[in-house]
Amino acid sequence: MSFPRRQVLGFAASLLIGLAAATSQAQAQSKELVIFAAASLKNALDEAAASWVKESGKPAPKISYAASSALAKQLEQGAPADMFLSADLDWMDYAAGKNLIKPDTRVSLLANRIALIAPSDSTATATLAPGVDLAATLGAGRLAMANVDSVPAGKYGKAALEKLGGWDKVKDKVAQADNVRAALLLVSRGEAPLGIVYATDAAADPKVKVIATFPEDSHPPIIYPVAVTKDSTNPDAAAFLTFLRGNGAKGSFEKQGFTVLNKPASSS
């Protein structure tokens, strides 16, 4: 059976309109704001994002939490994201060196502390002073830490123990986790008697308690930088960054124990 030319042309036009509508819908979906953020930011950033949605009427951003090292590597491999929040300067510097961020958007947003934690019912005690021997406190147990070679929390913890002269005594008893929240979970579940995490992580889990806080001069300053990624074309990225730097998010960060810095990169 043959169809009149006009009918065929009409069908083709309808098909093109349908394809255009589908493309438009796909483009709209691609406007979803995608954030890569250090695992230790989860509680505070989830709350801040919810406040932003309520205030702006925008769709909720999609936030992927992991170790800063893993996120930076994912960006390098082409993973799509509009914003990167790192738990240290090193991995943001790495992203900048690979031309993965927009340098003029980079801000040192937050500061944190690292702490020694134990299960909430533990009777363990420790003094984080020169000569500290956590191996004696651990006994047959292990010290939960994020990966000490790549994950910021693990790097800070190792640096602090080295400065205090306690790393060599405990390095063979470390249980390394993929990120700081995984290390927190080992202690929370009672699978490790001690752990080193951010003070903000400890505050987020009632099943653990801080038994000592590391001296600030025992490790590099713990700074969380944020930047919009180089390939982001989502206008909401700049809007969300502005929100994170303002009073709308400040309470969410401070409630979790972060210190709000909000300084341009050149001031950090």
Score class of each variant (00 low, 15 high):
Asp90Gly: 06
Tyr94Lys: 08
Lys98Asn: 06
Ala118Pro: 15
Asp104Cys: 06
Asp88Ile: 02
Pro103Tyr: 11
Leu116Ile: 05
Val107Asn: 02
Asn112Cys: 01
Ala87Thr: 06
Asp104Glu: 15
Pro103Phe: 04
Leu100Asp: 03
Trp91Glu: 09
Ala87Pro: 05
Ala95His: 03
Leu109Gln: 07
Ile114Tyr: 14
Tyr94Thr: 06
Ile117Gln: 08
Arg113Asp: 14
Leu116Asp: 12
Asn99Trp: 05
Asn112Gly: 12
Ala95Glu: 00
Arg106His: 00
Thr105His: 03
Ala96Gly: 00
Lys102Arg: 13
Ala95Met: 10
Val107His: 08
Pro119Ser: 12
Asp104Phe: 13
Ile101Leu: 10
Ile114Pro: 13
Phe84Ala: 08
Gly97His: 12
Pro119Gly: 00
Met92Asn: 01
Tyr94Ile: 02
Ala118Asn: 09
Ala115Leu: 07
Ser86Ile: 01
Leu109Asp: 07
Asp104Pro: 00
Arg106Asp: 01
Asp88Ser: 14
Leu85Ile: 11
Ile117Thr: 08
Ile117Asp: 13
Leu116Met: 09
Ala111Val: 04
Pro119Thr: 08
Tyr94Asn: 05
Asp88Thr: 01
Ser108Ala: 15
Pro119Phe: 14
Ile114Met: 08
Ile117Lys: 09
Ile101Tyr: 05
Met92Arg: 02
Asn112Asp: 15
Ile101Ala: 04
Asn99His: 11
Ala87His: 15
Ala96Val: 03
